[in-house]
Design a protein around this nucleic acid. Structure first.
Lengths: 322, 322
DNA sequence: CTGAAAGCGCTTACAG
DNA sequence: CTGAAAGCGCTTACAG
């Protein structure tokens, strides 16, 4: 069949097989109770004609799409890959397909993408992002089951929520640095998103003389000045990206990691194992979190209540912390 | 409105506004020639009821989805992010939405995802992958416009094709190393995909004594042995990921980059700027390639012929090459 | 400017 | 086991 020809429908198959379209529909869906002869003729005809079901029609009439929409902050974030894989495995096991959409870190765009998924007609949405507001989530939750993976400023009760325990993760990072004998520990952040804030608050509560640096401003230079001056011997970075950055910039300044500066990151992304020294970091059980998000979303689709889960992070030690 | 209540349809809006559903449809689509009064009443009623169009119905009847499907090898590849952004910008400018799907490097899965996008009813597909066979592409091209970005083993005439000039990229990399005085240059690869093969063939044709190493086997160790023995002074890696890997492993062995070993990668991904030394690498004009792919796909949708474009890569010099 | 009718390609009862 | 009818929620001509 060529693209210019009209796409064959169930009616064409019915005509070719000499049966009614109801029977074609039943046979195609693999329904029991279709005569062996008919089934065979129908399948052969469908194959012959290059028949493909029309998804729009099918979904319109069945009222369900068997589709889970996944919304990502952006495509660049290595952190979310494993989560999405976890979502997909669980979704596929349940007979659902997954489609992705992403927003490039821009809340307006992200909100538009969310509505886009809803308008498309997905059965449920899993938002792997901390960049949606309670309003956005509330509005979405009024239309379909939505589960958040991450840490937005606030998640309404109507939405499900899976996140890792940032406070515990920060505790693990700092306990590790303390154990290694570090007293003068700095905190490096690139935003003030809730996950970062939670890690920072824990940092503040556990470190005697907290010193915080913003990677966006001239913060990194100041941090390295402090290291050179002997005022800082270790840094807890809010994520691996920043940890890699500080390791690189320290190297550019002739400072040695971990000799002059111990570094601990967060997320255990691929990057942590690819730079040198490797990054000591905090790992979140990402595939499992993705799987749980899916399970929850599908349970909500069947009428279950939204739930919240806090996953337990763990410390992964590599060379950057000495 | 709550989720349990039936979702309002155009008929509900019509009733609430006291007009026919045709008029509601026209008003909602912003068609000219709807009375100001009616329009206002209709829009108010729709808003009041929390009306949202049913995408399945709309697409079934209009026969088009205004949707471009993008198929990715996997989510992990930093290389493709900019391409996808380029696709999205161009698509949005043309009034199309973009849906992503990905296959985790597994051809079977990738093929299933491709068919999934088609069955979903997207208007066109852009496959940002080199992992589909000519058969898969041929079959897809029979159903809708498809454009490949990347380098599969073979692209049928019915599909559009955008790729970078791997031969030229390899030439740039090797000319750079020669200029820096390197004679004993090795090639490091992780697969034998067509893009890699093209880079390798160019390597073979330009280097006096070609020495190739496979990063999967014990190749990296052998490569570093050769470096330690003074048999190799530079390596051209098939991509940045491998370049970062060899830099890391060299560091683990106490070898210095670029002192003992100069390294050039390919792709100019984020990684190139994040490791130390920074990676000298070959950049592809990725956003532009994505934009071109979209333009081509939409032109094909309007009946245009498939075309092929070869983008010109350029050398980006950082510390890893001395 | 507005409405009634037909139809998109399917599935879902309901007869037989 | 099979078929005819009704309907999913919308848009597209076509009247008026």
């Amino acid at each position: 069949m060529t693209r210019t020809a009209r796409r064959p429908t169930i009616v064409d198959v019915a005509r070719a097989a000499g049966v009614s379209k109801s029977l074609v529909s039943a046979a195609l869906r693999g329904e029991a109770g279709v005569g062996a002869d008919s089934r065979e003729r129908i399948l052969a005809a469908a194959d012959e004609l290059g028949y493909r079901t029309n998804g729009w029609a099918q979904r319109l009439v069945s009222g369900r799409s068997d589709l889970v929409g996944v919304l990502l902050t952006d495509l660049r974030n290595a952190y979310q890959t494993d989560i999405v894989n976890g979502i997909e495995d669980a979704a596929r096991d349940a007979g659902f397909d997954v489609i992705l959409s992403h927003g490039r870190r821009d809340r307006g765009l992200l909100r538009a993408r969310l509505q886009g998924l809803i308008d498309l007609g997905v059965d449920a949405v899993i938002a792997v992002t901390g960049h949606l507001d309670a309003d956005d989530l509330e509005a979405a939750a009024a239309q379909l089951p939505i589960v958040v993976v991450g840490r937005p400023s606030s998640v309404p009760d109507a939405a499900g929520w899976i996140r890792n325990d940032d406070e515990e993760g920060a505790r693990l990072a700092l306990a590790h640095l303390h154990e290694r004998g570090h007293e003068r520990i700095a905190f490096l952040h690139g935003s003030s998103r809730p996950a970062t804030r939670a890690r920072r608050d824990t940092y503040r509560s556990l470190v005697a003389d907290p010193r915080e640096f913003d990677a966006d401003a001239s913060g990194i230079a100041h941090l390295l000045d402090a290291v050179a001056a002997g005022d800082v011997s270790a840094v807890f970075a809010a994520n691996d990206r920043l940890a890699a950055q500080i390791v690189a910039d320290a190297s550019d300044r002739g400072l040695r990691v971990p000799g002059d500066l111990a570094v601990v990151g967060y997320d255990n992304t691929e990057l942590a194992d690819l730079v040198r020294p490797g990054l000591t970091t905090i790992d979140q059980p990402r595939p499992a979190m993705g799987g749980e998000a899916t399970t929850l979303a599908l349970a909500m689709l069947r009428g279950g209540a939204p739930a919240r889960t806090v996953a337990v992070p763990r410390l992964v030690i590599r060379g950057s912390s000495g």
